[in-house]
């Protein structure tokens, strides 16, 4: 693959926010297999709490768009409101191909559809982190 070699020497920390346990666990596992440090969170609230507690040092955020109580977009808005700027990738299980306008307006360009192959995910992380 080779993507890992292009990543910075420091082990990147990826926060994965998804209410679906299966997706959360498997994507975390995948990130770890690629040598990343992955921390799963079951909801936006959980991530924000960790952030407030200072236990969520994330280089990149991987957020599911559809979550009950707090959607991916709401989480992004919250982060913007707190002026927390972390490179963010939104992924969704929706079949809709277009990136919702709200995300575009919020400056989110990394909008991926599930299921996403490892190569695409790594490329997205790379570009997000690299572009930051």
């Amino acid at each position: 693959m080779g993507h890992d070699r292009t990543l910075p020497a420091r082990v990147l920390s990826i926060a994965i926010v998804d209410d679906d346990a299966g997706v959360r666990v498997s994507v975390s596992r995948l990130c770890r297999a690629f040598g990343l440090h992955a921390v799963p969170y079951a909801s936006g609230g959980e991530f924000l709490a960790a952030l407030d507690a200072g236990t969520a040092p994330a280089d990149c955020l991987l957020i599911d768009a559809h979550m009950p109580t707090m959607t991916g977009f709401e989480l992004i808005s919250q982060l913007l409101a707190r002026d927390v700027r972390i490179p963010t990738i939104v992924f969704t299980a929706d079949a809709t191909p277009a990136v919702p306008a709200a995300y575009v307006a919020a400056g989110i360009s990394n909008y991926l559809r599930k299921p996403l192959p490892a190569a695409d995910l790594m490329a997205a992380i790379e570009s997000a982190v690299g572009g930051a």
Binding site: D20, G22, V23, V25, S26, V27, R29, L30, R32, A33, F34, H66, T92, A93, D94, A95, T96, R113, K114, P115, L116, P117, A118
Partner: peptide
């Protein structure tokens, strides 16, 4: 139909990610 695609994509995502993680390992 949108919701059903969503509902199927979740396990498919988990399967794909798991499988690729295993291959990597």
């Amino acid at each position: 139909s949108g919701a059903i695609a969503h509902e199927l994509n979740q396990p498919l995502t988990a399967i794909l990610s798991n499988a690729e993680a295993a291959r990597m390992l």
